Amino acid sequence: MPIVEAHILEGYASEEKSRLTAALTDAVRFVVPAPDEAITVMLHEYPKEAYARGGVHRAPAPALPKPDRLVLDYLAAMEARELERAEAMLGDSFVMAFPGTAPMTALAQLVDWSKSRYRFVKKSYEAVEAFNSGGAAIVYARGTLSGEWLDGAAFEGIRFIDRFEVVGGKIVRQDVWNDIAEVRAQ
């Protein structure tokens, strides 16, 4: 039965501590073949006054946003064409790759590129999955696309997968795979 103990400073909300214990449980399961109920995670909280680094008392760092929630908020802003809101969720080195085009670094590029493909597109999600890898949160969103072609004809049920990298609470990469070109060619 694995037991994990973590020491944190006071100041994190209950929801943030729950996220931390769930993430530590997931980390153990990645290596040890133990069911959830066999993994114990204990958080030890210390008052800010009991901690100093370099002789200076420090406050805890703010918790990062949930990466899957950040991605869903970004995708909702994009669907609503609230580009300023979406851009606020992007890191300085943001890059996105869509099928059939070179990588883009600005949302306006994506909007211009999509004008020759369809009038609008909406996403229905089957799953959104997040995990940590090499200092980045990786988020996969998958499901189907629906919308309207340039001629006004409706489409639906087109598969997609979006992969995001989130670093420091900002989206730095988006990779998109979908079957829109194959369906449009029919």
Rank of each mutant, 00 (worst) to 15 (best):
T101A: 08
D112N: 13
F94M: 05
F94I: 00
G91T: 10
S114C: 07
L75R: 00
V71P: 01
P103S: 02
S114F: 10
P99S: 08
R117K: 15
V111D: 12
W113S: 07
D92M: 13
V128T: 11
F120M: 06
M78V: 14
T101E: 14
D68P: 00
A86S: 06
Y74G: 00
V111F: 10
M78R: 13
E87G: 09
R119S: 06
E87L: 04
L107A: 01
D112G: 05
E79K: 13
M104C: 01
Y74W: 15
L72S: 04
G91W: 08
M96W: 05
Y118E: 07
M96T: 05
Q109D: 12
M96Q: 10
D73Q: 12
E87T: 14
W113P: 04
F94Y: 13
Q109W: 07
A80V: 02
A80D: 06
S116N: 14
Y125C: 04
A102D: 14
A76K: 14
T101L: 03
M96P: 04
E79Y: 04
A108W: 12
F120G: 00
A97L: 11
D92L: 15
S116V: 13
D73A: 13
K122E: 13
E79C: 01
D73G: 08
A97F: 01
E87A: 15
M96R: 00
R81L: 09
R81I: 03
A106Q: 15
F98L: 13
A80I: 05
V121N: 11
V128S: 09
E126P: 07
E129Y: 05
F98G: 03
R81Y: 06
E126G: 15
K122S: 10
A108G: 03
A76Q: 13
F120C: 00
M89Q: 13
A80W: 02
E129D: 14
L110Y: 11
F94V: 07
D68K: 09
E129Q: 14
G91M: 10
K122L: 13
E82Q: 14
R117G: 02
E126Y: 12
S114G: 11
L72F: 05
S124A: 15
A86P: 05
R119E: 09
L83D: 02
A77R: 03
A127Q: 14
